[in-house]
């Protein structure tokens, strides 16, 4: 399940519950793109993610790249063991993800 609303800094907060994987990568991608187009940036809340695969992580990497290009905020918050495990398994570090909001 994917849901979203805007926070006080003008970022779109997208909450993902359940799966962050091949099956919904397309849907989430569309949400992320809308977020970057219409908002200051995107905060992705992964607290409820219970299933994650390589394509799910790849989507986060692509979103990070997009944010850098557009000079927008992209922040992943929350704690999800399945996302953590997948990051480790794929040879990525949790630190590879922006935890610090960009200064501009």
């Amino acid at each position: 399940m994917i849901s979203g609303n805007q926070d006080k800094n003008g970022n779109l907060v997208i909450k993902i519950e359940g799966s962050l994987s091949a099956y919904n990568a397309g849907d989430i991608k569309d949400r992320l793109l809308t977020g970057f187009t219409n908002h200051q940036g995107v905060i992705l809340d992964i607290n409820g993610v219970t299933e994650c695969d390589t394509l799910g992580i790849q989507l986060l990497l692509s979103a990070r790249k997009t944010a850098e290009m557009l000079n927008k905020t992209f922040n992943v918050t929350g704690d999800s063991p399945s996302v953590q495990d997948m990051l480790t398994g794929l040879g990525l570090e949790a630190e590879d993800f922006p935890c610090v909001l960009k200064e501009d």
Binding site: A22, A25, G26, I28, K29, L32, L33, F36, T54, L55, Q58, L59, L61, S62, A63, K65, T66, M69, G89, L90, G91, L92
Partner: peptide, 27 residues
């Protein structure tokens, strides 16, 4: 085993086909 994901080929969202794998690995 030490695995490092190579992310350079992952495009931005606009150009991403979400069901394709762009990552590759050095192990």
């Amino acid at each position: 085993c030490s695995v490092v994901a190579q992310t350079e080929k992952v495009p931005d969202l606009e150009n991403l086909s979400p069901e394709s794998c762009y990552l590759f690995w050095d192990i």
